[in-house]
Design a protein around this nucleic acid. Sequence first.
DNA 1: TGGTACATGTAACATGTTACATGATTAG
DNA 2: CTAATCATGTAACATGTTACATGTACCA
Lengths: 169, 169
Amino acid sequence: MERQLNATAASLLGFLHEGPMTGYDLIRTAELVIGDFWSLTRSQVYRELAAMAQDGLIEAGETGARATRPYALTDAGREAFARWLATEPPPETIRFPLLLAVVFGRHLPEERLAAFVAAHRPRHERKLAEYRALADEIGDEPYARATLDFGLRYEQAVLDWFDALPFTP
Amino acid sequence: MERQLNATAASLLGFLHEGPMTGYDLIRTAELVIGDFWSLTRSQVYRELAAMAQDGLIEAGETGARATRPYALTDAGREAFARWLATEPPPETIRFPLLLAVVFGRHLPEERLAAFVAAHRPRHERKLAEYRALADEIGDEPYARATLDFGLRYEQAVLDWFDALPFTP
DNA sequence: TGGTACATGTAACATGTTACATGATTAG
DNA sequence: CTAATCATGTAACATGTTACATGTACCA
């Protein structure tokens, strides 16, 4: 009781402010909305949902078709979310395996390292294109625009970095 | 046996190519060299060292002063490292709690969100300054320069993003 | 000789990942 | 009626975090 929410669980509560959702819905929403800077897996979502139901932060509704189980936010859940959101967010963590390969680059043939970079590039190009398309669609919703803007700058920075690297295949 | 190395363990092996080091040395080195894009904790390092010693990838030497135990790379360790390094690195993961606060910004007073941003800024300014200083010191070592260059671009992108945000305290 | 920094480690727990198992619904 | 997709979940394991425990060497 009173255990501090983790960011994953809290985000699920955040989404439930729009109304009751099933685990599946939540997973899709989360992947779409925060997936680019907050990864989560199915297992994790179901586990957090079970735990939060246990703690009274959410309530399972009537089981529908295909055993879908919609969860609704409770008052306790709303409060727990508000408390979490009011706390200063910790610094970001980046884990960039490609950079490890670069650091240990002298143990690797240069063309191999260049191939790694080349393999990573399309993903970032795609993301950047996706974000640019979204930027056109999106209205004046400032919060969505702000996160998108981060994505744009980040992907652009990565691609610029790739371009500036001296390793070429 | 033959279990695939994780990136943390592999990095420790990478550092051991310079010669035998103790857990403490490895932690300091890792934090310094890869800490900005590959976080690790003391516990983790000691656990990985024990596991790798068990697997014959490293060998503990004579216990020295203060119970220091230098670990040396074995041939098996060298091979395991080479195999790991030859595998294409997976995509990076970013976990940016501040962005979660932005996404759920409408549940938060705007000045609170602005305060979060303001609280994050100094860290990034410091990093950027640190990287710029390093850029002057560093020689023509291309791999170190390449990782540093990523850091410079990343921190610059984050600060530019902060500046462009419409939330002001 | 007492405090500080050094150095190693364990225990307990939280979080994240992968593989597996199960059944319902829908489209062809 | 059958294959694909939807949807939920568990089990086992790997990784990451925090708190605690222990003792050593150095410096004032």
